[in-house]
């Protein structure tokens, strides 16, 4: 009580309160804040535009030299005279590893999310949830090292020989799972990618699964649905948009992942029918060759970067388009 009395004394001592002055100070603050945030927002566009323009400038000599044939030329010979450079190997490797990674990560990631939200006993939820979050926090180089020193030997000496033996003699499959087993292969890289993107899919799926109104689920259980039927017919349809968003985010990460992949993919520009053979991805090729490159070679690597940019852009654009369609459908 005594404090308040003292305070009001001080206020009065400061003289009459200038209302207009205070208001204009507020306005100035608001305007400054508006422009400050606006500059921040616009700077994102400027940076994005700058990156695209500098990529195009850097890639221009290679574009002029190779044209569209760059996309389907397999040979990568920077030391040939003149250098012959084609992007088919890295593009193939990027698509194959990402595809296999998603093939593994989507079912497992959704499985974890469903278990966590629908079936998991309360006391186990937190440990599993935290473990998934930690998985997302591990630096990618650690995945690379683990993939090389721990996963590599297991795949090379146990899993791959088993798969090669299993499919031996069956057409198509025998060449997809063809030997010899290797520490460094497209499959190893894809498996590491799958583990790396798993947390993205799981975390987002868990969040969106939680948005399903309990009354819907309870109604479904009430008419006698099994858990599988509830998930299949209520939870997934209700959250499709969010789940696809998470999957696309994961795909974006898989396409661009560099360090872990460079470690274990084998960095070979040849096309390999077998997923146990070595390959390379766009980002791995850039990471391993850029420092020592010059002239057309460097320009071709920048062009590869531009291709990755375009590829990722299309993936995200396709995701948006799909989401928009789904929203429209849901709206009808």
């Amino acid at each position: 009580m005594a404090d308040m009395a003292v305070q009001s004394d001080v206020m009065e001592a400061a003289g009459p309160y200038d209302r207009a002055k205070a208001l204009s100070a507020f306005r100035l603050g608001d305007v400054t804040f508006y422009w400050l945030t606006r500059v921040c927002a616009v700077s994102v566009l400027l940076i994005l535009g700058g990156i695209i323009i500098s990529l195009i400038i850097g890639a221009w000599p290679a574009m002029m030299e190779y044209g569209f044939a760059f996309l389907w030329t397999q040979r990568w010979a920077p030391s040939a005279d003149p250098p012959v450079l084609g992007a088919l190997g890295p593009i193939y490797g990027t698509l194959v590893t990402s595809f296999i990674a998603m093939l593994i990560a989507i079912p497992v990631g959704l499985g974890i999310a469903i278990f966590l939200t629908e079936l998991c006993p309360q006391w186990l939820r937190r440990p599993i949830g935290i473990a998934i979050e930690l998985l997302a926090g591990i630096p990618s180089i650690i995945y690379g090292m683990w993939g090389f020193f721990v996963l590599g030997p297991f795949l090379a000496y146990t899993f791959q020989p088993f798969m090669i033996g299993l499919f031996d003699g069956i057409p198509v499959l025998s060449s997809i799972f063809g030997g010899p087993p290797s520490y460094l292969s497209l499959f190893n890289a894809a498996l590491i990618l799958a583990i790396m993107v798993l947390p993205f899919i799981t975390a987002i799926s868990v969040d969106v699964f939680k948005t399903v109104p309990p009354v819907l689920k309870e109604a479904a259980y009430g008419v006698g649905c099994t858990t599988w039927e509830v998930v299949r017919n209520v939870v997934i349809p209700y959250t499709r948009v969010g789940v696809i968003g998470g999957v696309m985010l994961a795909l974006g990460r898989a396409l661009g992942e560099t360090m872990a992949v460079t470690f274990i993919i084998g960095n070979s520009f040849r096309l390999s029918a077998s997923i146990f053979g070595p390959g390379t991805t766009i980002s791995a090729a850039i990471a391993s060759e850029f420092a020592e490159s010059d002239g057309l070679h460097q320009s071709a690597l920048i062009l590869l970067g531009l291709l990755l940019f375009v590829l990722t852009f299309f993936v995200l654009a396709a995701a948006r388009l799909m989401l928009m369609r789904l929203e429209k459908k849901a709206g009808n």
């Binding site: 030391s79 040939a80 090389f148 520490y183 460094l184 084998g266 391993s288 060759e289």
Partner: peptide, 28 residues
């Protein structure tokens, strides 16, 4: 193939740096 700082390797897997090659050969 010829000789240069980076060549078009007919076979094999690529590892980064002297340490990458020694790591690979030491392991596999």
């Amino acid at each position: 193939v010829g000789s240069d700082t980076a060549v078009e390797w007919p076979v094999g897997v690529g590892a980064k740096g002297n340490e990458g090659v020694s790591g690979n050969v030491g392991q596999a």
